[in-house]
Nucleic acid binder design. Structure first.
Lengths: 210, 210
DNA sequence: GTCTATACCTGGATAGAC
DNA sequence: GTCTATCCAGGTATAGAC
């Protein structure tokens, strides 16, 4: 009899850690090059794995891609309740913009994967976007409308306002590399995000305030 | 002797028209699926050409891709002088936002190809972006600074203001399909662009006006 | 200028040994 | 759970006939 049998060779924790590493690397690469621009080989190579090993953990490239999107969506949904939860318009704007920018700062790749998917017409994720994002958007717009009805904010085109908030904050994830290049620095820092936050919030609030 | 020899079989005009058709189709496909997501076959098929014929007109896929970017850049540079040319801040903002949105409306694919390239870190076009776009951006910021010095506008962070103008207008090209889907219509129409223009201009001017 | 044929490679995915 | 071997589709690009 050997002692090896009693020792668990591949603890579940290690496997989970590896799968998370794969997800993270996949997210990074999909963000830059899109679904078709990434090969399983390039993901595996970055982690010093073989492509075959990677396919052991996910049945296909597409499943891996959807797993990345699911993971981002989970975090996004957990963070993006700012407007509908807030009881007060100004606080809602401040919280929403700050949350969105923080998400852009902390998970730029995850954000960019989404943008790419949407630019392509969401061929692999339209169902989730329509089921999850669209209702949130309409709820936010409705909340603004109610505040306008109550005379607490001026009435703007709130749908397009949401598009502006969304695109101007998202850009700090998708185009952060370009922005920093144009400003002559290696990467965006906390101060840049703080300046962006201040500018966006002030711009919006100056137009909303009665 | 035959008469055919005296008749030019392939007039230059037809060739040019074909090359323009190729460029246009390539732009449309690169916009949606990115450089790697597009095959020469799919471009050729859409034009009812063979891939080989396509490669007769351009030496390689990469050359075709750069030709698309060059073509977009030419038009962009011709349109984007609004701020530096205007003598008056409010007119400058109005013209700039209107021009940028019009460009998003008239050439959404061209705009999207650029966004994709920048998201990837401009692996195939960084030289041109640095040489052409960056000086324009800094000139625009400098113009705002001068107007602020003269007390004609309030001082904001003009670099980030440019980022906001850029991203919020660009979104109507890159994400137009998503926006229209969220609004429950088949495509964005003139009224949508007009609403976007009004919102963005008003938002900015309310913060700039002294 | 356009076509057929072909070279050559990359990439996703499966089978099976260990 | 990881590796080697292999299959096969699709892709870029070139050669050469017409």
């Amino acid at each position: 009899m050997t002692v090896t049998a009693s020792v668990p060779r591949t603890p579940r924790a290690a496997t989970l850690r590896k799968q998370e590493a794969i997800l993270a690397e996949a997210e990074r690469q999909f963000a830059r090059f899109g679904f078709e621009g990434v090969s399983l080989d390039s993901i595996a190579a970055a982690l010093e794995l073989s492509r075959q090993n990677l396919l052991y953990h996910w049945p296909s490239k597409e499943e891996l891609y959807r797993a990345v999107l699911d993971s981002v969506m989970d975090e996004w949904l957990a963070n993006m309740n700012a407007i509908t939860q807030a009881g007060e318009p100004r606080a809602a704007i401040q919280a929403y913009v700050a949350d969105k920018l923080r998400f852009s700062r902390e998970r730029p790749s995850g954000n960019a994967v989404f943008t790419r998917e949407m630019m392509a017409g969401a061929p692999r994720y339209a169902d989730v976007l329509k089921a999850q994002v669209m209702p949130l958007l309409h709820a936010d717009v409705a909340r603004f409308e109610r505040w306008a009805d109550e005379g607490r904010i001026r009435r703007l085109d709130f749908m397009h306002l949401m598009f502006l908030i969304w695109s101007s904050t998202q850009a700090y994830a998708d185009l952060g590399a370009q922005f920093s290049l144009y400003m002559g620095k290696p990467a965006l820092d906390d101060a840049d995000f703080e300046r962006a936050r201040g500018l966006i919030v002030n711009l919006i609030w100056r137009s909303l305030a009665v």
